[in-house]
Design a protein around this nucleic acid. Sequence first.
DNA 1: CGTTCACTGTTTACACCGTTAACTGTTCTG
DNA 2: CAGAACAGTTAACGGTGTAAACAGTGAACG
Lengths: 241, 241
Amino acid sequence: MLTSREQTRAETMRKIVRASRKLLTSKGGFTLRAVAAQLDMTAPALYRYVESHEQLMQLVAVDIDSTATEEFKKERDKQSAEDPAAQLMAAAVAFRTWALTNKAEFHLVFTNPEVDHNALLQTQAASGLMFHELLFRVWEKYQFPFPAAETLEPELVSLLCDPQIPIDMKGVPEELYGLVWVFMRSWAALYGTVTLEVYGHLDPRVVEHGLIFRAMIEDQAGVLGLTDELPRMRALIDKLI
Amino acid sequence: MLTSREQTRAETMRKIVRASRKLLTSKGGFTLRAVAAQLDMTAPALYRYVESHEQLMQLVAVDIDSTATEEFKKERDKQSAEDPAAQLMAAAVAFRTWALTNKAEFHLVFTNPEVDHNALLQTQAASGLMFHELLFRVWEKYQFPFPAAETLEPELVSLLCDPQIPIDMKGVPEELYGLVWVFMRSWAALYGTVTLEVYGHLDPRVVEHGLIFRAMIEDQAGVLGLTDELPRMRALIDKLI
DNA sequence: CGTTCACTGTTTACACCGTTAACTGTTCTG
DNA sequence: CAGAACAGTTAACGGTGTAAACAGTGAACG
């Protein structure tokens, strides 16, 4: 139960974060005075809600992460729930499109050294969790092969059995922990490709036409047992991209 | 021929960039006043050499890129010139090690939205050029297969024939332009993996033990016709990492 | 019901930032 | 040798994040 004071406080908190987000992409820049002005306040008042400019950035990062993930989920859910492959593609494309459209926000959440990603990951890692869950459902349907624990480095096995990142592996038997390795590698491929595209360390036309992104998807499709589905996936991506 | 004035000017220029680099990683932060203090000057004096703080950052970025590449080349050249595979591995490991050790500098050069990468790429893209050259020499020796122009999207073919990024393809016949696509994808894999490691969007222990990096290298070894060399490469990486 | 006190805002101020303008001395050049 | 080009200074402006002191307002309690 919240007192009325706590309620208004929480709401101001939300307004602060929302205003900060808006200013992040505006040309004026994300300054405390600008944020305060949006709420008809003065800058020092913000210190009643936030410890520092940096901590506010952290809050904004978490907010962006979770609302962006909402977007991805919306795209995912436009595909049939019985078609995890299509859902995965839709989410991946949504991730890429969002990143390329909102570079400043992507930068804040995914490649900002000032943001403590580990702390962020511990509490929420909305997008990461979502992709892991999707990948698991793809495996449930297609049963693609994954490395047995015996073939992996012992260090790797031990850390896969005790994941430090919140992975929703409840009800997954120990024998399947090699799967987590596949998931990590898929995430690495997606994240790496999108980051490369966002920062443009590549011929811009390759980004424009989504050529490496498509190539990466095709590679991953092979890994995830979706080779037979490839023509369908290609058509889907053409539609989504 | 340089007049003595031009000479001292060029030297001050170098000192400014060097001081800026040093301050970039210091806790004090990279401010014009701090840079000036390092040269026993006042901040406004820097405007005789540099248009703005942002332009100075660009210069620092270029400097970092080129000196880091020197480092990579030094590691490359510790391997036999007749062994391009080993040279490539050495350079790739050097790139990764450098990135993880100097995250602030990596961030500035490779994932800083304020730095105009395209401009940077046009003039110098020291590291990119180096990797392209290495990859070409690997192909010369191992003759790994690459996609024929006919199997690629027409947009892709046309942009490969007219690269916007300075690739040293002089003397390479037109039929080999499918190779460039392999190169781009290899670069994407390396850049993506290293960026992921640097920003830690992954279980930190996976980074610590270099597990995804190794996995990425093994994948790329397959693509680059180095499957038979893998045991040797593995041993080499163990030594280098 | 009145008092107290935590809460939420204000104003003022500080140190620092990038940057501009005006001024001064030195050094090269015609 | 005169004058211009250069390389530095000081002073100042508007901006930043942040700290301290103060003021009103609403909730809680005797």
